[in-house]
Write a protein that binds this DNA or RNA. Structure first.
Lengths: 216, 216, 216, 216
DNA sequence: TATGAATGAGATTTCATTCAT
DNA sequence: GATGAATGAAATCTCATTCAT
């Protein structure tokens, strides 16, 4: 946990440190990241970093927490639903918000990747990633209750696979970012959702849904 | 590229270096990996490393190439096929071999992860991973030709997503390795294949296949 | 010298600072001691230390002075005497008080050690330790006057040796502190005194005294 | 333990490192000593030190071991003896050699001091100091056997006190080094021995011996 | 009167790489 | 052909001290 002073720090400087650290941790593993580069980019002294944080791990955890926190607040939760169709509609809506947010935070994806890579090692970071996974697992559990999500595979596995699918499609999109045709980005969440349905929904539901989709 | 001398090197020593490096690169990112630890583990001299390799990156690329090469030779290609059912049967067979091989090479998964992480940075490593992806993309292309694989999404995207799904299920399995019930590991390729079908096959095919599967 | 403000400081805080510093300086040399650890333990601000003290050396000198001062006040001086027997009886009495006081101040021994180590370097601390030595030297001089202390060796040397003997026996006792049998601690001053007599007294006196002691 | 390479190192450089380290450790506690100062004084690179030693503690232990080893080899053991007079004659002879050796190695005393201070903390250094103490304790044990050493106090305590007395007299002498009158240094071992007899011998023996000494 | 934010120097240790032999 | 001695830069982190408020 960062020392309380950090919260009281001048907004500009606080953001400068977190941004510089996010930039660094988004592009390098925790081990390979350099506090020297971070302070150089943030424009703070060597001592300052250790005045606000216990150590490198503390800074890392803080950056991850901040990123996840901002994401959660910005994206918000999933709308309530009472049947399978409602579940998938709500999930589509959620995906839209997620996509929009990630598009405006280029470091977020890399940051989450570093976080999940380090989750098995760093205790604090592990808690954050576990919480994120648990939230999604719960979501899937509620999907099962209304028949929107298959019940023949462990929720934990489904959650992990869904995360991976989302990550892979994100990256694919990101690499083509500059050569996207107009409208392609807007269509993305829907296409991503269909992929997720394939993985998560009972097969008949996915089949029915996709048939309708194609017809329209 | 490692100097030609490396190929002529005593088998035992060559393997020792590659094994030690694989162990290191499997657990740490390229940047965070330490050549010091590698030579210590391999029991070779400092100079030896730089006598056989240009630098750390060269060693990394060689390790990746070697790992991928060994995997390809051990796993072999996919059997030929003439229709959709044949494609999936052949793919199942391929998965079985892949799973078996990965189970015997605990470093392989971590190594591939490091390789893909670094692919965007290191030129050589990028080529290897690109080749792997291309091979799988071609496979999918042949699947499309016989109607086994959907044609409504770019093959590149499908390949990436399939890799991600495979990776996620692998990891999930790996974490439960010690608490697996007997028979569970043997059943794994089939379950994994079903997940892949969901993503890769035309939806009607996936639905039909799964219905049969459940019936049996 | 600490700023005058320090004397006017709230009792609780003044003691907190001195105690924390004593704890630190008792376990580490002056150079290795950390003002950061001191203020952390004392619960005072960084600035406070430098508001009350010139620098680390000033704090050290103050701690030493305070410790020595408290010891002197608590232990008191040696009773007056008119002959050799009186001298040694008075010294035994003094040792009893010293032992009792040291037993209740676990930091004192370590503190004095740090003080003597630093005495050659730090000017102020050197004065305090010199004063302590001088007091004991004077004591020995009065012992010489009544024939209780040998006159064939320089008083300065005798004082130093006596200090060393006391320190060694103290440490020896301290290490066995937890495994002491009942009564052993109470008997300690007398045994220590006999050792000191051996060193300090004319040999005939020491011999006579010990013969009586053994007889009783 | 220093890496084997260190033993194979060029004599001049090996000595330069050990001397520089001895100089530093003789004047500062282990914690306060600076490897930076050591390499600066030795004229070796920063990496070199860690090429030869595991860490600071390893260097310290090596310096201590080297110093003790050289001292032991140079001073040699105590001559054999069959009665009390022989014991003290042999000890006097030993003291002479010790004094001579210490006089030529100005760092030795400070080094031993640092070693004993750190003995409770550093494992390796603890072994060396313990060995030294044990050797002296054994010596005293043999003295007890021939009636040269008192048997009414624990040997461990006697050894510690004797060390302390020796150290105090050494220091006292050292401080007066430059103002010593001719012959004073040569007379030192005898005076020191008398002090040790006072502490270590049965009182009658010490008394008899000193009476003779004075008569002569 | 009192604070705590801030810092640059310096601590120990590891790094990838070079080069004389 | 092969080595290991050697290095300076960089790593993370702590230091005693200053100063604006």
């Amino acid at each position: 946990m960062p020392r309380p002073r950090f919260a009281a720090l001048d907004e500009r400087k606080r953001v400068a440190i977190l941004d510089a650290a996010a930039e660094e941790f988004a592009h390098r593993s925790f081990e390979a990241a350099s506090t020297n580069r971070i302070i150089a980019r943030a424009g703070v002294s060597k001592g300052a970093l250790y005045y606000y944080f216990d150590d490198k791990a503390d800074l890392f955890a803080t950056v991850i927490e901040s990123a996840i926190g901002r994401a959660e607040r910005a994206i918000g939760g999933m709308a309530s639903f009472v049947d399978a169709a409602g579940f998938w509609a709500a999930l589509l809506d959620l995906y839209r918000r997620i996509t929009t947010f990630f598009a405006g935070e280029p470091n977020l994806a890399g940051l989450l990747k570093s976080a999940f890579d380090d989750a098995g090692v760093g205790e604090i970071v592990g808690l954050h990633t576990a919480r994120l996974l648990a939230a999604f697992r719960d979501l899937l559990g509620r999907g099962v209750a209304v028949g929107a999500v298959r019940d023949d595979l462990p929720l934990e596995l489904l959650a992990r696979v869904a995360f991976a699918v989302g990550d892979a499609t994100d990256r694919w999109l990101l690499e083509r970012w500059d050569s996207l045709e107009p409208g392609e980005f807007e269509a993305y969440p829907e296409r991503a959702l269909l992929l997720h349905m394939r993985v998560l929904a009972p097969i008949e539901l996915a089949e029915k849904w996709e048939r309708q989709e194609t017809a329209s």
